[in-house]
Simulated scan of single mutants.
Amino acid sequence: MKTVLSIKGLTKDYGRLRAVNQLNLEVQQGQVFGMLGPNGSGKTTTLGMLMGVTNPTAGEFTWFGEPPTHTLRKKIGAVLEHPIFYPYLSGQKNLELNAMVKECPADNIPKVLDLVELSGRKDDKYKTYSLGMKQRLAIASALLNEPTVLILDEPTNGLDPMGIAEIRELTKKIAASGKTIILASHLLDEVQKVCTHFAVLKKGNLIHSGPVDDVGRGAETVEVQADVANLSELLMDFSGTASINRENGYFQVTLRDEFHGKDLNRFLFDKGVVASHLVTKKKSLEKMFLEILSEH
């Protein structure tokens, strides 16, 4: 797979404060790459350096195997922080101005408006748009020059649940068209639903990187309840049980790697016990994220 972005030793200091420390990362073509981290972790600073808004203190990065240049950056669309448009101009007029600034054809405007589902509101003034519509217009503007890569910094920040869902579906649609997306967020659920890969930053340091599909792998935990007095003893007798604890009125059984919830269910059934509640629980990105942070 082709490497779109390669980061080596990227560092940014603000006086005594080190915002990003020796960051090494690679993003491959077609990935939806999530950058996760609490406030102050260095996500926005990193994106600012990648877009040429902020100069690195040390380290380097390449886009498509080449050092960043003005021509290369035309292949990259970005929505950084809060989008800025003229409030008394329509969505259409704002995009026409942006197309002039970016020196890209105005013919692209109907296409991007349709993609972000704003064609029906293109002639309305920007100030009448909801927060979600404003964010979608910003994404439309970032796509005007038909970039290969789209960078989104906290794209769902401040949105209501419907707005978050709209941006999520739009991100999936853009990714399905073949674009590489780099997305910074602190909303773990959104990253798990949208991204293919993710990295975790803490105080400017990279502490984890890998595929989202790896989340939840490993030992399963099964939540069990049954109307028998000796359930705890039965669960301990199961050869696949690694550990048991009681939580929220249920037994939480952590299984050994080669065992699954169906094996435990079969074991109980063979003992004459029918579970009234048996749910296999995969590790969520939130739980994994908190574990990663606590380890560092």
Rank of each mutant, 00 (worst) to 15 (best):
residue 278 L to K: 09
residue 155 P to F: 02
residue 160 D to A: 11
residue 155 P to K: 01
residue 148 T to M: 03
residue 291 E to T: 10
residue 182 I to Q: 00
residue 232 S to H: 15
residue 151 I to R: 11
residue 249 G to D: 11
residue 72 L to R: 09
residue 238 F to M: 08
residue 130 S to K: 05
residue 197 H to C: 01
residue 24 N to P: 05
residue 206 L to G: 12
residue 165 A to R: 14
residue 54 T to F: 12
residue 71 T to M: 06
residue 163 G to R: 08
residue 240 G to D: 07
residue 176 A to W: 09
residue 116 V to I: 07
residue 162 M to H: 13
residue 7 I to D: 03
residue 80 L to A: 06
residue 123 D to A: 09
residue 148 T to S: 10
residue 263 D to I: 04
residue 91 G to D: 04
residue 29 Q to E: 14
residue 26 E to W: 03
residue 127 K to F: 07
residue 251 F to K: 08
residue 196 T to E: 02
residue 113 L to M: 14
residue 211 P to Q: 09
residue 39 N to S: 14
residue 279 V to L: 13
residue 35 M to P: 01
residue 263 D to P: 02
residue 46 T to I: 05
residue 73 R to T: 00
residue 202 K to D: 13
residue 182 I to C: 01
residue 41 S to M: 02
residue 101 V to F: 15
residue 198 F to E: 04
residue 178 G to W: 09
residue 273 V to M: 06
residue 79 V to L: 14
residue 224 V to S: 12
residue 266 R to D: 14
residue 220 E to W: 05
residue 240 G to K: 08
residue 114 D to Q: 15
residue 211 P to T: 10
residue 229 A to S: 15
residue 188 L to W: 06
residue 93 K to S: 14
residue 24 N to K: 03
residue 185 S to R: 03
residue 54 T to D: 03
residue 34 G to D: 03
residue 172 K to N: 13
residue 262 K to L: 03
residue 118 L to V: 03
residue 49 M to D: 08
residue 198 F to R: 04
residue 279 V to G: 00
residue 93 K to R: 15
residue 121 R to V: 09
residue 278 L to G: 06
residue 124 D to P: 00
residue 248 N to V: 10
residue 148 T to D: 15
residue 97 L to V: 11
residue 102 K to Y: 13
residue 272 G to S: 09
residue 295 E to M: 10
residue 36 L to S: 02
residue 224 V to Q: 07
residue 58 A to Q: 13
residue 115 L to F: 08
residue 144 L to F: 11
residue 36 L to I: 04
residue 174 I to G: 04
residue 102 K to I: 01
residue 61 F to I: 09
residue 7 I to H: 02
residue 202 K to Q: 14
residue 194 V to N: 04
residue 87 P to I: 11
residue 15 G to P: 05
residue 183 L to P: 02
residue 153 D to E: 05
residue 243 S to I: 04
residue 116 V to G: 01
residue 37 G to V: 13
residue 118 L to N: 07
residue 92 Q to E: 14
residue 29 Q to L: 06
residue 142 A to P: 08
residue 246 R to Q: 15
residue 231 L to Y: 11
residue 13 D to L: 13
residue 122 K to C: 09
residue 86 Y to H: 15
residue 195 C to S: 06
residue 167 I to Y: 01
residue 286 E to P: 06
residue 265 N to Q: 10
residue 214 D to K: 12
